[in-house]
């Protein structure tokens, strides 16, 4: 039980004088009481076992995917949709994956896009973070570009592709430019709202401890704003990935290598619906995988450490 474990730590100070007799008029104040209170009020937090995680977290999405596949197959088998150029069968799409894998192209597609996306995201991070700090802390900067920054978030990043192509040509820099324009506002805004939501109590506590100016920013404001910042990063990644796909679809060129967006566009040009499906599934898969592997664990770690995550 929870109480037995905690008594061990808190009880050591009190046991010598008063034992566990509750309310006993001990000579040295209320020492015994104190240990009892601590033991009563502290809750033990333990981790969920692996089996529970599998059943709670892994099973539901697997079931969902299976249901989608079943419905899809049913549409084909029952001849609801009887036109492979509109809806290919799961097996056709599966073959497309298999061929791409056997010919060694599959990982190439993924890597072309993922490496671009992640590198672009890192650039966006390096620009968005100081920008967010500036907007949050400098009144003039906030008044000047704060509204624009929030406005940019709602501008679909596809809109940036034509000007980027005209300015930079059909090359990788143009892809990075589109990613930056899509992701920097999210990251900066996340940091701004994270900083805005820092409880004033923490700032005041920091000030009485001598954490003002840069020391305050480093020791109090940044860690307190971390959850909002992480949420911004997560959204920033989603925007990076979306922008990149838009750029790859619109601006495909043989020199750029074949990423997932180009694959989709190639499928369309070749009227191969199974290739289009392959590309869509891969785009979705990568977006989810990056979120699941990088951002979600990071966010959960931070929130759990602060007791902000309800277990379940």
């Amino acid at each position: 039980m929870a109480s037995t474990e905690t008594t061990g730590t808190a009880g050591t100070t009190a046991s010598a004088e008063d034992g566990a007799a509750p309310g006993g008029p001990a000579k040295d104040g209320l020492g015994g009481l104190e240990a009892g209170l601590d033991a009563l009020e502290t809750s033990a937090t333990d981790r969920t076992p692996l089996r529970r995680t599998l059943v709670d977290k892994v099973l539901p999405p697997v079931v969902a995917v299976a249901v989608v596949l079943l419905v899809w197959q049913a549409l084909i088998s029952l001849k609801v949709v009887d036109d492979p150029s509109k809806l290919p069968s799961p097996a056709d799409v599966g073959d497309e994956f298999k061929d791409a894998w056997l010919e060694g192209r599959l990982l190439g597609y993924i890597w072309t896009s993922v490496s671009r996306g992640l590198l672009g995201f890192l650039f966006a991070l390096a620009i968005g973070t100081p920008l967010g700090l500036l907007v949050a802390r400098v009144k003039f900067v906030r008044a000047a570009i704060g509204p624009i920054l929030s406005g940019l978030q709602s501008l679909p990043s596809v809109a940036w592709v034509p000007p980027a192509v005209i300015w930079l040509g059909l090359n990788n820099s143009m892809m990075y430019a589109v990613i930056l324009l899509g992701a920097v506002p999210s990251i900066a805004n996340g940091l701004v709202s994270g900083i805005d939501q820092v409880p004033p109590l923490f700032l005041r506590a920091g000030r009485t401890m001598g954490a003002t100016g840069w020391r305050g920013a480093w020791h109090i404001v940044m860690p307190a704003a971390l959850p909002g910042y992480l949420a911004g990063l997560k959204q920033g990644w989603a925007f990076s990935w979306r922008s990149l796909m838009a750029a790859e679809i619109i601006a495909s060129s043989p020199d750029l290598g074949i990423g997932l967006g180009a694959l989709l566009e190639n499928g369309r040009n070749a009227s191969s619906m199974s290739m289009v499906f392959e590309a869509i599934i891969l785009i979705l898969f990568v977006g989810i995988a990056i979120d699941l592997l990088i951002f979600s664990p990071l966010e959960r770690r931070v929130l759990r450490g602060r007791g902000l995550l309800v277990k379940g």
Binding site: G8, T9, A10, T12, T13, A14, G31, E34, L37, D38, L40, E41, T42, S43, T45, G305, R306, G307
Partner: peptide, 18 residues
């Protein structure tokens, strides 16, 4: 403050009095 064992505890793991 008689909390020797609580060095590594997070704030939310402590009771109000602690």
């Amino acid at each position: 403050v008689r909390l020797t064992g609580s060095y590594g505890k997070r704030v939310h793991e402590l009771s109000g009095g602690m």
